[in-house]
Design a protein around this nucleic acid. Sequence first.
DNA 1: CCTACCGATCGGTAGG
DNA 2: CCTACCGATCGGTAGG
Lengths: 222, 222
Amino acid sequence: MADESTLAPDDPRTGDITTAVEDGRRARGRRTRESILDAAVDLASVEGLDGLTIGRLATALGMSKSGLFSHFGSKEELQLATIDAAREIFIREVFAPAREADRGLPRLVALLDAWLAYMRREVFHGGCFFDAVRNEYDSRQPGPVRDAVRADFATWSESLANRVRSAQAHGHLDPGADPEQLAFELDALGGAANVRFQLDRDEVAFERARRGIHSRLEALAV
Amino acid sequence: MADESTLAPDDPRTGDITTAVEDGRRARGRRTRESILDAAVDLASVEGLDGLTIGRLATALGMSKSGLFSHFGSKEELQLATIDAAREIFIREVFAPAREADRGLPRLVALLDAWLAYMRREVFHGGCFFDAVRNEYDSRQPGPVRDAVRADFATWSESLANRVRSAQAHGHLDPGADPEQLAFELDALGGAANVRFQLDRDEVAFERARRGIHSRLEALAV
DNA sequence: CCTACCGATCGGTAGG
DNA sequence: CCTACCGATCGGTAGG
């Protein structure tokens, strides 16, 4: 287990016993915060960012409400931090593996495969965190949480469209195809698989999504 | 405004002043219940069936909590009644108009058009009620509300697949196509348009769905 | 349909 | 990180 002494070599403040103790506290606080956010992301994927209550989260972690709350200034900050934590996991589980594939169509296919696999193995208990919160906040009043949800979805949509454009630039897909249109359809198929799998727990949903995705890509392959 | 006297001709209990008064009360109660459910469906399409709280609903209707509550035995009964009310509206706004079209492909297209139009004109404030509650309950613990949501979604999926089969039987669509697969893809495109429109308020989402739907149908047309 | 409640839980604060 | 609170709101009940 890491404590202040293992961090000391890289710490310019080493030698001052007071700051060393403070750093130890900070490191412990950071670890606690991370474990809170791991639980928060999981809970929110099932109950939504509204159902993510401080009391429930504290009970799940065996902490007091106020102890947990002290890591965040408000429920909204907790919600925003939870979105940040989910984004990091999504990047690690979906974007990162896809980067191993060759540029162009192989990378687009790898991204979609990694996305479906992430939904299938339920990295979060309630399926795709972002699918859940997007549907939860899509018709809510404007606010920082809704803005964050919107921004992440825009990033995802643009990533898909950019990888379509890259596949076109590499001569793998018909350059006449509309990248935004194709990105819309690919996202739609994966999103439908996520909600159907969560509802029926029938893997056929992913098979349907995969078939739809590959038939779209094959139709545009050159 | 309808009251007990306008209902009397069809009522076998006419003539008994006590039951007439009771019927009047019942009719008034029924109308109140209906106005509650209209508001409930709208609120739930934005805030979800969990966010549908008795206090909020009572305030919106200018009623007392307990007065409203007396129409339902529990919050769960209110949620189930809200789903019933939303179903009736969906049938009236989506299924019924599609029945005007000729059997086969025209009716399938009419159903999809009516569905997109219903989402576009926001029959419910938060977009498609069923899309909202399906995503809200997909990963929840089993229970009567989740079961009702599942059942309605199964009905919708089967309706789409049956209309695909009818179009095949009428020689309008390739009989070799998998009706369930096509129904999955058509539903996915419409669902994606709903959430995107709610998030960005950009009508292009419906254009994308329409283009995707028509290209799928054209590819299978005979 | 109302007033007047109930215990539980909500987000949040004081003070250590 | 805790105990001990706060006012507001939750679903629900008693009694009329």
